[in-house]
Design a protein around this nucleic acid. Sequence first.
DNA 1: AATGAATGAGTATTCATTCAT
DNA 2: GATGAATGAATACTCATTCAT
Lengths: 207, 207, 207, 207
Amino acid sequence: MSPATVSAPNQQNTKTRIIESARDIYLSEGLQSLSMRKVAKQAGLSTMATYRHFENKDDLISHVIMEGFRIFQSYFYKALEGKTPAERLILSADSYYLFATENPKYYEVMFMSVSHVTATAPSEQAQDLIRASIQFLYDRVAECVDAGLLDGPASKRQVLHLWSHSHGLISLYLSGHIDGNTPFKTLYQESMAVMMKGLGFKKEKLS
Amino acid sequence: MSPATVSAPNQQNTKTRIIESARDIYLSEGLQSLSMRKVAKQAGLSTMATYRHFENKDDLISHVIMEGFRIFQSYFYKALEGKTPAERLILSADSYYLFATENPKYYEVMFMSVSHVTATAPSEQAQDLIRASIQFLYDRVAECVDAGLLDGPASKRQVLHLWSHSHGLISLYLSGHIDGNTPFKTLYQESMAVMMKGLGFKKEKLS
Amino acid sequence: MSPATVSAPNQQNTKTRIIESARDIYLSEGLQSLSMRKVAKQAGLSTMATYRHFENKDDLISHVIMEGFRIFQSYFYKALEGKTPAERLILSADSYYLFATENPKYYEVMFMSVSHVTATAPSEQAQDLIRASIQFLYDRVAECVDAGLLDGPASKRQVLHLWSHSHGLISLYLSGHIDGNTPFKTLYQESMAVMMKGLGFKKEKLS
Amino acid sequence: MSPATVSAPNQQNTKTRIIESARDIYLSEGLQSLSMRKVAKQAGLSTMATYRHFENKDDLISHVIMEGFRIFQSYFYKALEGKTPAERLILSADSYYLFATENPKYYEVMFMSVSHVTATAPSEQAQDLIRASIQFLYDRVAECVDAGLLDGPASKRQVLHLWSHSHGLISLYLSGHIDGNTPFKTLYQESMAVMMKGLGFKKEKLS
DNA sequence: AATGAATGAGTATTCATTCAT
DNA sequence: GATGAATGAATACTCATTCAT
């Protein structure tokens, strides 16, 4: 609303528009068939205009992925609204599920890609964001241990047990390896409950 | 030089050679940079010769993947050498681990790929082979239930619990999301033990 | 005329046609603005057809340059028709002049380019051909020394004296540094005579 | 910080800075990879700022070349420090050699380029500077003739004999056609001596 | 005096595939 | 059973330059 805002016109707009176009293409057709041409076309720009805003394809893609992480985190932090440690832990698992199923393509690149498939080596930034998420889960586990709901002591390994299981379910689902007799949501929650039982979880009720 | 060699052309030979070339390229350079040209060149054939044997690129790739499944099964069936149901179940998990870590590229396409990465929707044949593997695991679970080592009744869902966890660990590992403080093998076995505890597994000893 | 010749149709034709197109463009517009597209277009082919016949741009260019050397040599060998050593030496200088002025663009890339201007590092093959030409001149000098027409002993250095002078005249001429009051041919022959006088040449008459 | 610095904008400064950036890039990477973008970047300006100071790329390049001529002349005029006509003539040849070997990139564009390499037809200004240099050499020759050291009468043609030979040696050297058994400096001086002998030069001693 | 946005033409090259032989 | 010729679409990216500000 300041004059400055007025005088700098659609610069930010354009950049955002490009990211959004890239994101859309990438979400609907996959990373593989995302090209600078397509992106520019969809954004209503010349191919080369995109190069004004992003150094190169990798740069653009990493912006798109960052967007994915931003969304991911917004799901996660909703889990903090739970009122007890147990609830927050379970909500975290649910949030993870929700993010994955509502943003399958994002999930795919963020967690299911293998380096040379992506061609884009996971950036430092992305790594940091993943670490942050692991820390987030660690906090959830730790407060459950403190509350006597999980066998202690809290460890990154416990996080890994949980994450792996969640990721295993989701990625098998997303790659079509789980047939649809039971709703996946039910399956997911039930399977996570089994996992948590293995971890000595005391609370019986699942969301 | 034998008449047989002369009269029976190397049709089958050639086809096999093409698959092997494709497999080698794919295993060493990844699916992304596997092209019909390269395959043909490596097989010592003209590019077009491959089209005599395979409808198109996807057809060729799916043959390569089938080869992966054959290898996969050979790992699995070794688990049958275990002497007790518990041992056979645990060996199955270990076999799965072994296949994945010794054939990461195969594991990747077979279980970690998403539709548009392959462009090849998983073929009927592949689906059948996966179903067979699930059945294999189901048998392992069922004999453990019969032996009173697992909470009954045996179900495909129990298989899924196990598979998901195994797959989750392995795929996070293969995509570089697990840092290497602990040897992955230890981690894997430990984590699988936690999972099996959740399933009510009675046998304490892990291979 | 053999059946074989008949059945292999315009394969060689096409390759030749591409080289000729490349040569023409390059002779008229220079190496700098020779592109695969232009070449293909001029040859009446799709851009990619050229890649069937040449590995890449450099490959094509080096074929063009080789063509230049072939022409160059045909000029040189005409000098062997001279009846005496002196005549053959002088005819060599004249041949060099003729090649350069009748094929200035070829001369340019063959002798006036600097590595990074060409981008195409002078190929082994080209180097060999230049060496052959130097040897040719050496033979001319040597037979004049034997005939007592030049101060001995014959040496590569004497060749260099001659070549440098010839090249200096020609390249200054081709790059427009010599204004046209006197016909260049006269100038060239006169200047070469001065050079040869410096080398102790006995024969007075120049072509 | 002085008032002058503040009030007089750095227009001239900026222009100079651009030329210097262009020169640096050109000297280190060659004419081919000199682009307006790179120049502007290196000068710490926006790409378009350069267009404020130079009509277009060719204009900028020709300014860079002018800089080369300025340097060239500074080498030449050092030859005037010689104490006798003969010495001054020989020093001129040496200066030419020195300029070329110490500033090969400059030598290249100034004397070895062919029209379409530069795209910039040698500017009027450049032509003038070359003419001045020829006159300079003419003066050297003339004073030698006056001193009875060279066959008279002095002529532009004699200058051309000398210049051509010098240029021939240098350009063959710079384009890599002279292999390095003998130090080029020795070769150059020796070869120039041969040339001057052809011109009837009386003085034996060479610098 | 300088900037940022955007353009359009151009670059080499890779690829899967069709067709005639 | 295999080959060679050719195609057309696609790819990322570079560059000089115009325009509005």
